[in-house]
Design a binder for these strands. Structure first.
Lengths: 227, 227
DNA sequence: ACCTGAACACCGTTCAAGT
DNA sequence: ACCTGAACACCGTTCAAGT
């Protein structure tokens, strides 16, 4: 048997020498989670998949993270760091831009969008966003009591929009379940839906989002001014 | 060995004679699902658990239901049958009553509330509810184009309210994560949140729901009248 | 003291094999 | 033809046992 060639390519890869497989940490875990959410198309977050990617067993993650629900909170806040809270224009334009930025960040991955009603956003970035919205509403002349409730309503609108969008795997497309349902609305039994069917399906996502923001802002101003 | 007493209580229970273990059907499955959602506190719907309760293996359900996501759609519509679409008063009062009824039905079980952004409500009851809302908005003088988009916004509001409520396992309680987050909002870094902290936490769920409906209706009317 | 393999108690879905 | 036990490919979480 010939001697082993000492210059042969090593096929065993020491995991120590593998370049920059960094030691486990909260940050590494959260970043891997976000990476998977943006690449793995729509698949739900999984501790086991994260562990595998980081070359450990799932139990090891529990040293750095309390469990799935804490991880979700960390991931959500990390993602919210991308929300732009400063832009230019009137307070109304800046509010709209902020909400669009918020929705855009959440819509970047379906898994993130689905997370939005499972975890309450209470991290530093949620704080930053809410503070900015309160600032803008104050500029718009909305009193503090109404503004304080309004931030929740605006947030619900953003969250519901992205969550709805993430859920429908094409429900709104031509021939999809929504169109089929509308087709089932007869003039006799559901006259109003029947009559409005084209209007119900009209508009792009962004048009409808802007329309929603307009409705909310009008409502908030109207209420604030009546008091 | 003594003879068996022919009058002894039978301990073997023929499943044929067990009273009314009805044959499998879509309806039986959907009803068992709803039963479990209202009793099993907050646990997510599970095909396996339904199958066990109906005395079969999980595979048997697939003869009657396409899979989890079709079951969810059926369950949601079945539940929506409980939404009251007729009440008395002005159109505005009747709209508020309808939305409260809708929210109440969905909030009956956390599992149902969580389902609301996973499945698009397109069954007969969703049709009935949407038709009633369109009718009320028409009464209120809202044009068809705005009303057609408004039904989605109102539905998102109801859904987001119950979904948020279902998610927070007490996030809003005194000492809960929301209060803790607000405590982290310093006067220096987050002045508006800091100043509004009491207002942010104020109000009951129902007060805030009615406030939200008021904002939405004001906004919709304002927009409709401006065109 | 720290870490983790293996186990626990679940999932939804598929399909071969049996009646 | 219909039905389903068992398997497949996953989950999150726990914990005993090892270093």
């Amino acid at each position: 048997m010939p001697d082993k060639d000492p210059f042969r390519e090593s096929r065993v890869e020491s995991r120590r020498s593998r370049p920059a497989k960094p030691p486990l940490s909260r940050d590494v875990i959260v970043e891997e989670a976000l990476r998977q959410m943006s690449t793995e198309g729509g698949a739900p977050l999984s501790l086991r998949r994260i562990a595998k990617a980081l070359d450990t067993g799932p139990a090891s993650l529990y040293a750095y993270v309390d469990g799935m629900s804490e991880l979700q909170a960390l991931v959500l806040d990390h993602a919210l760091a991308g929300v732009q809270t400063d832009s230019v224009g009137s307070w109304r334009e800046r509010l709209e831009a902020l909400l669009i930025s918020h929705a855009t960040v959440l819509a970047r991955s379906p898994a993130l969008a689905r997370m939005v009603f499972q975890t309450t956003a209470v991290g530093p970035n949620a704080l930053r966003i809410n503070d900015a919205v309160l600032q803008l509403l104050a500029e718009g002349g909305v009193d503090q009591a109404n503004a304080a409730w309004a931030i929740d309503l605006l947030d619900m609108f953003v969250s519901a929009t992205v969550a709805e969008h993430a859920a429908d795997t094409g429900a709104a497309q031509p021939g999809g379940p929504i169109e089929q349902a509308l087709a089932r609305a007869s003039a006799g039994e559901h006259p109003h839906v029947h009559a409005a069917r084209d209007d119900i399906l009209s508009g792009t996502g962004e048009e409808r989002f802007r329309w929603g923001v307009d409705i909310l802002v009008r409502g908030i101003l109207s209420r604030a001014q009546s008091q």
